[in-house]
């Protein structure tokens, strides 16, 4: 479930990145590779689980699925926070700088 959640996040962000390409003012490329990197790593984790116990992967209990979904959503939230911090620090459009140093009329 964590793999699926991250994979869907990766696909959605990739579509959003492609729609805006070559303009990447929102730094979606970083979020994109972050989700793809995590998805690939969890894919290996899923293969390892499958080799050990296939039933655990394909027939999870309701509680395990819910816990994994909750974890997957938390992972997506963490990735979004990391991306937001990078976006605000790099500030490609200079909006943060403009907002901080604007003069009162």
């Amino acid at each position: 479930m964590t793999l699926l959640t991250t994979l869907f996040a990766a696909i959605i962000v990739t579509i959003l990145w492609y729609k805006r390409a070559p303009n990447d003012n929102m730094k979606l490329g970083i979020l994109c590779v972050m989700f793809w990197g995590a998805s690939l790593m969890w894919l290996i984790d899923a293969v390892a689980t499958y080799i050990e116990d296939a039933a655990e992967l394909f027939e999870p209990t309701g509680a395990a699925m819910l816990n994994d979904l909750f974890l997957g959503l938390s992972v997506v939230a963490l990735a979004l926070v990391i991306w937001l911090v990078i976006l605000l620090i790099k500030d490609p459009n200079g909006k943060v700088k403009a907002a901080l140093f604007r003069k009162k009329s």
């Binding site: 590779v33 972050m34 990197g37 963490l78 990735a79 990391i82």
Partner: peptide, 20 residues
Amino acid sequence: KWLTNMLWGGSALLAFEHVW
């Protein structure tokens, strides 16, 4: 940079899973 972003991002999210 594509590779390092993929590795850092994936590792960070995986590390969070291990903390979880």
